[in-house]
Simulated scan of single mutants.
Amino acid sequence: MDDKATLHRYLQLRRADLLAKLDGLSEYDARRPMTPTGTSLLGLVKHVASVELDYFGVTFGRPSGRDLPWLADDAEPDSDMWVPASESREEILELHHFSAKHSDETIESLPLDAPGVVPWWSEEKKNVTLHQILVHMCVETARHAGHADIIRELIDGSIGQRSGDPNIPGRTTEEWAAHRARIEQAALAAGNRI
């Protein structure tokens, strides 16, 4: 597999990881703010879909034609990070699929060294290549998929990329509680040394 195909595959996997965190959740749980700053699972999906559409669209002169009012200059700050009741889960999922398709078309049609311009970046950084943006979006998507992992665990205790994830130790609820308690004790002991 060449470098472009490798990066593209990682981006596709992280997109799938992020979307999977919505599986089986109620509307409330998909939208509810789980941090003091309001981070929610569906909000993360909306944000990633929105920024990916611009990075692989506008940056390479391939605008999608899709109006995203939450990214407009006069939009309320952070309106791309949450989903009001007037926007359905289906609309956000459709946006994510549309964004991925548009982005995939850009990735497939351009070489890694294709030049682009990120107009919202500073003058000295705004000239980029497809390679740079692919790396940027792999990191951005993985970062938010990590946020989603933690949020989903806080909502219902689900952990890992999928049921039976081989990277997650097979502990019972009691074993997880004992594991957490041991970590808490270590933190308290370290904190008391100061």
Rank of each mutant, 00 (worst) to 15 (best):
I151V: 11
I155L: 13
V128A: 03
G160F: 08
R171Y: 15
G157P: 07
K126A: 06
P166W: 05
S109I: 04
E108L: 12
T172S: 15
D74K: 04
E123S: 10
D156H: 04
R152F: 09
W120E: 03
T141M: 06
P119L: 05
I107V: 10
E153I: 01
E87A: 05
D80C: 13
I107D: 00
T141D: 05
P77W: 06
S122E: 15
F98K: 11
M81V: 03
A85R: 12
A186V: 11
A178H: 06
G164P: 04
P77N: 05
A148D: 00
E175Q: 15
R171P: 00
G160E: 08
A100V: 13
S158W: 13
D149S: 04
C138R: 01
L93Q: 13
P84W: 04
L130V: 08
E124S: 14
I151G: 03
V135L: 15
A85N: 09
E91N: 09
E108H: 10
D104S: 15
C138Y: 13
D113K: 09
P84L: 05
I168S: 01
S88I: 10
P115N: 07
D78I: 00
N167G: 11
S88K: 11
G116C: 06
E184Q: 11
I92M: 07
A145L: 03
K101S: 09
I183L: 14
I183G: 06
E184V: 09
C138A: 14
I168Q: 02
S158P: 01
S99M: 09
E124Y: 01
H102W: 10
M137Y: 11
